[in-house]
C-alpha cells in the first residue's frame, strides 16, 4: 500500500475523531438538557378555621376527594352555644330598638302639644339611633357566630388526593394550623434545574421531552417559565450585621442551577406520577 494512502487513512480517521469528539462535547455541554428534574404538583394545605376536637373524619390517607367533599368536622357545641347567645343578643337589641323607637314616636306627638322640650325629643331620637346601632352590631355578631358554626365542617377546597394524613378522630385541632395537604388533580408539572450556562438556550414555549427515572415512554411538555431569582448566600449578615461572604476558588467555579418550569401535555392514564419523582429533561434546540 502506498505510503500516501496509509497517511491519508489515518489523517481521515483523526479528522473524523475531532469532528465526532466536538459533537459529543457540544451535545453534553451546550445543549439544553438536565438530569436534575423533579416532578411537582400544586399542593393545597388544609387547616380548620375553628379550634376544637375532631368529631368526624371522612377521609383516609391518599384517598381521592372532589372539591366540596366533607373532609372532617370539628366539635360544634361551643359554636352552637355562641350562636344561641348571639341570637338572644340580637333579639334583645331588636326589642330595645323597638322600645326606643316607640318612645321617640310618642314624644314626637307630644311636641305638637308643647308637652316636651326640644332637648328631650333630641335625646330620645339619639337613643333610638343608639338602639339601632346596637341591633346592627348584634346582627353582625350573630353572622360571625353562624360563620364559625358553619366552619366546623371542613370541605375540600380542590379536587385531588389526600397526602400525609396524621389526623385522627378525637384530635384537637387549632384554628389556622394545617393538618394535612391535598395534591391537586391534574396539576402535575416538572421543574428542571438547568445550569446557568445553558439558560441562554432555554426559551418560553420550547418543546420538552421528560424521561422519568422509573422508565416508560417519555412525557412531553412545554417550557412555561424560567425562574428569575435564586437565593444568594452572600446576602446574609451575621450577628453584627456584617455581610457573610462565601469564599470561592478562582480556578473551579460551580455554575448555579436555575429552575425552569415545564407544563406537561395531557398525561396517559397508565403513567404513575408522584410529586418529587426524578426526571431527565431534554429541550429541543
Amino acid at each position: 500500500m502506498a505510503k500516501s494512502l496509509r497517511i491519508t487513512v489515518t489523517v481521515l480517521v483523526v479528522l473524523a475523531a475531532i469532528w465526532a469528539g466536538r459533537w459529543v462535547w457540544n451535545d453534553y455541554m451546550h445543549s439544553p438538557w438536565t438530569r436534575d428534574g423533579r416532578i411537582r404538583a400544586d399542593i393545597v394545605t388544609v387547616a380548620p378555621d375553628v379550634s376544637g376536637w375532631v368529631t368526624t373524619l371522612n377521609i383516609a390517607n391518599d384517598q381521592p376527594v372532589k372539591k366540596g367533599d366533607l373532609l372532617f368536622s370539628v366539635d360544634q357545641q361551643r359554636y352552637q352555644a355562641a350562636l344561641n347567645q348571639s341570637k338572644a343578643n340580637t333579639e334583645n337589641a331588636l326589642y330595645s330598638w323597638q322600645l326606643a323607637k316607640h318612645k321617640y314616636e310618642r314624644r314626637t306627638a307630644l311636641l305638637s302639644q308643647k308637652a316636651i322640650s326640644d332637648e328631650d325629643l333630641e335625646e330620645s331620637r339619639i337613643s333610638t339611633e343608639i338602639a339601632k346601632a346596637n341591633y346592627d352590631l348584634a346582627v353582625a355578631q350573630q353572622a360571625a357566630a353562624q360563620l364559625n358554626l358553619d366552619r366546623t365542617h371542613v370541605f375540600a377546597p380542590v379536587s385531588g388526593h389526600i397526602i400525609n394524613l396524621n389526623l385522627r378522630q378525637g384530635n384537637y385541632v387549632g384554628q389556622g394550623a394545617s393538618v394535612f395537604a391535598i395534591v391537586q388533580s391534574g396539576s402535575f408539572y416538572v421543574t428542571g434545574y438547568f445550569e446557568e450556562t445553558k439558560i441562554p438556550l432555554v426559551r418560553l414555549g420550547q418543546q420538552a421531552k421528560v424521561t422519568l427515572l422509573s422508565g416508560g415512554k417519555p412525557l412531553s411538555g412545554r417550557v412555561v417559565s424560567v425562574g428569575k431569582a435564586i437565593a444568594n448566600s452572600n446576602t446574609q449578615s451575621d450577628g453584627q450585621l456584617l455581610p457573610q461572604i462565601q469564599q470561592t476558588f478562582n480556578w473551579v467555579r460551580l455554575s448555579q442551577r436555575i429552575p425552569v418550569d415545564i407544563k406537561l401535555d395531557p398525561i396517559r392514564d397508565d403513567v404513575q406520577l408522584s410529586a418529587g419523582m426524578t426526571a431527565t429533561i431534554h429541550l429541543t434546540q
Partner: peptide, 23 residues
Amino acid sequence: DRIWKVAWFEVSLFVCYLALTVF
C-alpha cells in the same frame, strides 16, 4: 502493521465509536 501512526488511528477510532454510540 500497514497503518501509519497506529496509536493515533486507534485513539481516533475509539472517539468515533464513542460518538456513534452516543448518537
